[in-house]
Design a protein around this nucleic acid. Structure first.
Lengths: 234, 234
DNA sequence: TGGATGACCAAATTTCGAAATTGGTCATCC
DNA sequence: GGATGACCAATTTCGAAATTTGGTCATCCA
């Protein structure tokens, strides 16, 4: 998404873009989209303001790439987990990983929570569609459910649409946190365990999956994650 | 919570208070707390503005009673269900009922969702505590989990605090709805079914409860609901 | 000579005092 | 003596002036 235009050297050019993105990320989590000025980003990256516009056409485009970068990394990390251990492809386990990524990254959390305070103009795309949809999260979730069903990891007696909705609602509930329970007495990884257990109980088949089908499912889940990750670059 | 003060007749006085509350409820759901003026309420109730202040000391006090009234009725309704059918006391069933009440009542929904757009100054009490906590929702939930555990309807292997948190998060997730899934393609009662199934799977013991303990649990659940309801009046 | 820059501009946002509105009171009136 | 609406202080809204900011481009070196 960087503008095509020659620089001193492709090497230096890329490194400069990284410096700009790093400055933008810092400011975004600290101040939120609206309060961050391009001037301030340039100052932190120790370049002129005009130089920012040699890399991105608009402020929005810059932050959109920032979002894609973070999400790209998160999806890659989750995919790596699945590659390491096939059982990480199970619904409960996978949702657990997603939860922990957002707990550890303010930007990703903002996306999942639809936090317009931080996301500002990025919260909804020009078409009025929430970024998280724009970013293909729903398509990925639908694909994952499809894979899980195909490999018998979740019950096929219930409609896939219901399972998608359930996962989305439960994940959102754990991310935003409940209303009634005061304070955050629970550690993120413990909350992740509760979420994992809930998803597992609500969706996974009671029978333990055999090694072979789990391994096959993991391969498809991995492919879906990588496909979703790579789709971000397009 | 009405001010103690003599009126033409206790009968007429009470009826007038009801007219005021009805007008306030209409306006609250249509415009939200902040945009509703006491003047407009009085106009709709066809009385002078000063008369409103013969019933409540402040605008906040008026709406606080409105909230309590709606919640009082909802808790009574749920209690009635449990009285009718003991199996309505099961976690999944009970949460289902709560979900349907909030789906059907804009004021209750606003309370559960923490909708400060509608609740305005009511969203948080003067102490900065969310209304829903102030209204004892957490205490009720804790008590219900305690009862369910005592009667073997939910597993006692997991800590009660975890179960309370889980119910709260899941319920909140279903009320606010997920982020990724576009549109509301699902009917409220169908969403209620999915919620019910999720809670049941995540918390209830696998063994079907015997008639006797279910009946005993229902009695305690009923008592807890009534106690929570009556606590609103204090 | 072309990549980097910051002065510059139109548009959006913030400021802040004036004007209007509103929660709450109370002298007045049936 | 219960009900009322004119009235008041305090808050909110309005709006125009002042400031800020996203984005451009003539200028400047390396």
């Amino acid at each position: 998404m960087t503008l095509d235009r020659l620089a001193a050297s492709p090497q230096a050019d890329r490194e400069r873009a990284e410096r700009i993105l790093a400055a933008a990320r810092e400011l975004l989590t600290a101040w939120g989209y609206k309060r961050v000025t391009v001037d301030e980003i340039a100052r932190r990256a120790r370049i002129g303001k005009g130089t920012v516009y040699l890399h991105w056409k608009t402020k929005q485009a810059l932050f959109a790439e920032l979002l894609r970068r973070d999400l790209h990394k998160a999806l890659g990390d989750v995919a790596a987990d699945v590659g390491q251990d096939p059982s990480a492809a199970l619904p409960g386990r996978l949702v657990r990983e997603v939860f922990l990524r957002q707990a550890g990254d303010p930007v990703i959390r903002a996306v999942h929570a639809g936090d317009s305070e931080i996301l500002g103009a990025l919260a909804v795309s020009p078409n009025g569609v929430p970024v998280i949809q724009e970013l293909g999260f729903h398509a990925l979730l639908a694909r994952l459910v499809e894979v899980w069903r195909a490999h018998g990891l979740v019950a096929v007696t219930a409609p896939a649409a219901d399972q998608i909705y359930t996962i989305d609602a439960v994940l959102t509930g754990f991310i935003t946190g409940g209303i009634a329970v005061p304070g955050e007495g629970l550690r993120p990884d413990h909350r992740a365990d509760l979420l994992s257990h809930t998803i597992k109980a609500a969706l996974e088949t009671s029978a333990e999956p055999d090694e072979a089908s789990l391994r096959a499912a993991a391969r498809d889940v991995l492919a879906a994650l990588i496909a979703a990750r790579d789709a971000l670059v397009a």
